[in-house]
Design a binder for these strands. Sequence first.
DNA 1: TCTTGACCTCAAGTGAGGTTGAGGTTGCAT
DNA 2: ATGCAACCTCAACCTCACTTGAGGTCAAGA
Lengths: 152, 152
Amino acid sequence: MRATDVLTIGQLAERTGVSVSAIRFYETKGLITAFRTQGDQRRFLRADIRRLSFIRIAQHLGLSIDGIAEALASLPHGRTPNAADWAKISRALRAALNERIAELERTRDKLDGCIGCGCLSLKKCALYNPGDRARALGAGPRFVLGDKAGPV
Amino acid sequence: MRATDVLTIGQLAERTGVSVSAIRFYETKGLITAFRTQGDQRRFLRADIRRLSFIRIAQHLGLSIDGIAEALASLPHGRTPNAADWAKISRALRAALNERIAELERTRDKLDGCIGCGCLSLKKCALYNPGDRARALGAGPRFVLGDKAGPV
DNA sequence: TCTTGACCTCAAGTGAGGTTGAGGTTGCAT
DNA sequence: ATGCAACCTCAACCTCACTTGAGGTCAAGA
């Protein structure tokens, strides 16, 4: 293994734009793993750059840490994921993305219907029905890969 | 003013599906105002149902409490907003919505380009460039009505 | 060898968006 | 007039996704 194949946490942070403290946090959450030097310092593989990229993209799409952990669980254990592995998991991400887009479009169309009447009334108006509430709660959109309805 | 024109906080909660504690919280944040009975209990107007609906819809679209307060500031002060007022503010909401949809579509298209190569590499890949980072941070999407770049 | 910057752990803090609980008051029906 | 559900305030607590700080260790260059 060449020296350039392993990265310190600082190097990984610098290459990904993710802070050192955030990387350590992700490790405690099981999103990423490091091996250790004799002096207990973390060392990462170059493949972890891609893993971290996936994490940040997925976050941008609204997935929670737990949702991302779930998605990453589909990657092979015991070997470094290859391009095909990443392509597969990216397609799952794409599906989640399409669903979120469709949901926003539905909301927009309902809003269009409401602009005319100016009703904007919960329960009465199609725009906001109580069944949607679970999805709307919390800080930002939450949905899990492969879970159409989102968390209960 | 008929008795049916005013609502207790419990009635407002029941009609909107928003919890009593959340309504009180919104009041402390200035999103909604109530007048008080002699015994210091809150009383709301029926128009506040619409106001609360707007708040929840805007939240669902990813606006922060502060962003919603800003949007609501464009409503007339001193009189109950009418249908035209709500239509105007709803159009602003629609614009924010369209922007968010467009952003997600751009992300999806970049992701499509990346599935082929399986690159998924921060900085190198078009999918995630550091300039986007400010927008991606925090819990869920943040954007302010009429603010293209989002909060600084 | 020494220095210095990068690293380590663990605990506490942050901010958004609320909820929960204690202890007390109001207001409507009977 | 009385009972009791619904209201009040205020402080503390919660989750999420991190950051910050204290106190200490490691590793590489001069």
